[in-house]
Design a binder for these strands. Structure first.
Length: 614
RNA sequence: GGUCCAUUGGAGCAGUGGUUUAUCUCGUCUCCCUGUCACGGAGAAGAUCAUCAGUUCAAAUCUGAUAUGGACCGCCA
């Protein structure tokens, strides 16, 4: 094919009076009778092509017959426009076409290829290649690519070695559910796809590579969320002979470069640190959004002896009364709206939401009558009330107070529009507990992962009172989202053994699962530490998207399926036989239904526009 | 595993039991138009109201189940 002069979106006044050759998609044809404009689009933008009756009848007809999304080649001369469009990068010029060649026609697309359309996720994913033509999504994918580029450059400049680790690994019962791959050579045995390359990267430190990084694909077979996909990418790093400070320095260096290269923003370092305890107390979460205030206050001391039994009772039961003050909330929220919030926090097991408004020096609302003078002045002092605030309280167990008020805080902030736009606020959350109690399974689990080094005091506590131990781990949080996390790793067999023991492993099970690691730690393993950043989430935040699907070329839907290729799908009986895998009877019908649906879809597809003659 | 919401021409929506021939916007098609850029003007086509069952004289509308999609809880060391 003839060489393209430049992308459509780059045809600016620099090309004035030059002959150009362009390729692109027809965005729009505006036919004014004896004058036709064609908006020609490619990944860099849109340029206007013009044809008029001076160009000849043939060219006019060619221009008029174009449909949306036709792929065409345009040759012509770049000329100045008679009326400039300042909205467009190419708005000063237009291409006076001398030749228009249709390279491929297009059916009318199921949705328009432009930004700010509302189309169901299903349709978007089914026609993902069309969805991806939209400028907005293209720029998100390109932004992601720029992050990757900056990452490679940064680690290369800093002497890190890019090492790939296997995708086919071994299942471990800890953590998330594994994606399994049946083995043909060992029927009945399975590989597991990695949830993260954690142990491989530690072993690479043992191997002496000293500074490792990888853009690692990770897989977790858990239910999806807006910010969670079954497969995702981690910017993974590990370094030897380093401590928290050095790992954080490397991370800040990386973030600084990414923010500069991708966003043109100078990130101020060092990034602030907040302890896990302070984060929980002030924000109710381990991933605080520090772009705005509205901090959570512990009001238990104020309401300890309150006549309001809901408050004093909760405290007497070992719970807390915590609250937030929403500035200008008194006007902004009706009783009905606040009651809706009460329903909202029920999902976090809160029993209710108490509230008062503070206006003109007076408290009003359902529980105002329980506030004695002392309570009132204490609240005014505690929150620094100025008037116009809505105060909401949750009286419950610590965890319920934290969860409810964390979500309420973010909801109120969003609704009262106090979150600064286009701002990216990073914060380190440090000094984590080593363990947390899992209510579901009724035992202690590692807060970060079982290879995290306790602090010095924590090492002592492992023998006596392990669950009070603190971890040498750190999370990097941006705008209230966990971007990444890491830790100093255990590099001594004895400590790792104690750790497994504290987690309730038997010696036998620990060695069955992690014997190779324990043995490796005993063969000159260097002190090491690392961190991993969730690339997808980072890209999502920088692209200011509220769904992770928008920064992935081919994501799965909320039910972990992919409506374009139809994955997952049943496979041929022979394939299962080869693997020694048998589908349980109870699932055969469902699989057959999916198969039937796929066949029906195939017939529908070829019935519509197929040219296949039999 | 659970909760909530949605499903109406190609896309997005309106329509809370009967004067509906199902509303509007965009798109599509036809005709007109030489300076548009969300072109404009005139006209047209396009919908078994997701599926199944029920309530009713009467269902897009009420009820239940199913399917699909979305958000959330659980889950995600």
């Amino acid at each position: 094919m003839e060489k393209r002069t430049n992308y459509c979106g780059n045809i600016t006044a620099d090309y004035l009076n030059q002959e150009v050759n362009l390729y692109g998609w027809v965005q729009r044809v505006r036919n004014l009778g004896n004058l036709v404009f064609i908006d020609l689009r490619d990944r860099e933008g849109i340029v206007q092509v013009v044809v008029n009756h001076d160009s000849g009848k043939e060219l006019m007809e060619a221009a008029d017959s174009l449909g949306n999304e036709y792929v065409i080649q345009v040759k012509g001369k770049v000329v100045k426009r008679s009326s400039v469009n300042p909205e467009m990068k190419t708005g000063e010029v237009e291409v006076d076409a001398s030749e228009i060649i249709v390279l491929n026609k297009s059916q009318n697309p199921p949705f328009e290829i432009k930004d700010n359309i509302e189309v169901s996720e299903q349709t978007r994913l089914k026609y993902r290649y069309l969805d991806l033509r939209r400028p907005n999504l293209q720029s998100a994918i390109i932004l992601r690519a720029k992050i990757l580029q900056a990452t490679h450059e940064y680690f290369d400049q800093n002497g890190f070695i890019n090492i790939e680790t296997p995708v086919l690994g071994k299942s471990s019962p800890e953590g998330a559910r594994d994606y399994l791959v049946p083995s043909r050579i060992y029927p009945g045995s399975f590989y597991a796809l990695p949830q993260s390359p954690q142990l491989f990267k530690q072993l690479l430190m043992g191997a002496g590579f000293d500074k490792y990084y990888q853009l690692a694909r990770c897989f977790r077979d858990e239910d999806l969320r807006g910010d969670r996909q079954p497969e995702f990418t981690q910017i993974d790093m590990e370094t030897s002979f380093t401590d928290e400070q050095q790992v954080q320095d490397y991370t800040e260096g990386l973030l600084k470069k990414i923010m500069k290269d991708v966003m043109g923003i100078d990130l101020k370092t060092p990034i602030d640190r907040i302890s896990w305890t302070d984060a929980m107390n002030n924000y109710g979460t381990d991933k605080p959004d520090i772009r705005f205030g509205m901090l959570i206050h512990d009001l238990s001391p104020i309401f300890k002896d309150s006549d309001f039994k809901v408050f004093s009772g909760a405290i007497a039961d070992g719970g807390f009364v915590k609250g937030i003050a929403v500035k200008n909330g008194a006007q902004a929220y009706s009783r009905k709206q606040i009651e809706k919030k009460q329903d909202y926090i029920k999902r976090f097991h809160a029993k209710g939401l108490a509230w008062v408004k503070f206006e003109d020096g007076e408290f009003s609302g359902p529980i105002a009558r329980f506030l004695n003078d002392e309570n009132q002045s204490a609240l005014i002092k505690e929150f620094g009330l100025e008037g116009g605030e809505l105060l909401v309280f949750v009286a419950d167990k610590w965890k319920v107070c934290c969860d409810s008020l964390d979500h309420l805080r973010r909801e109120f902030a969003k609704e009262t529009d106090i979150i600064p736009k286009h701002e990216f606020d990073f914060v380190w959350v440090v000094d984590w507990p080593l363990f947390e109690y899992d209510e579901g399974i009724g035992r202690w689990i590692a807060a970060h992962h079982p290879f995290t080094m306790p602090d010095d005091e924590g090492i002592e506590l492992l023998d006596t009172d392990p669950h009070k131990a603190h971890a040498r781990s750190y999370d990097i949080v941006m705008n209230g989202d966990e971007l990444g996390g890491g830790s100093i790793r255990i590099h001594k067999r004895s400590i790792q053994e104690k750790m497994f023991k504290a987690l309730g492993f038997t010696k036998k099970r620990a060695y069955e699962q992690f014997g190779y690691l324990l043995e490796a730690l005993d063969m000159g393993f260097p002190p090491h530490a690392g961190l991993a950043i969730g690339l997808d989430r980072f890209a999502m935040l920088l692209a200011e998207k509220d769904n992770i699907r928008d920064v992935l070329a081919f994501p799965k839907n909320a039910n972990a399926s992919e409506p374009m290729m139809h994955a997952p799908a049943p496979v041929a009986e022979q394939q299962l036989t080869d693997l020694g895998v048998k589908v349980e009877d109870q699932y055969r019908e469902a699989a057959a239904q999916i198969d039937a649906k796929l066949q029906e879809q195939a017939m529908k597809d070829y019935a519509s526009h197929s040219t296949w003659e039999e």
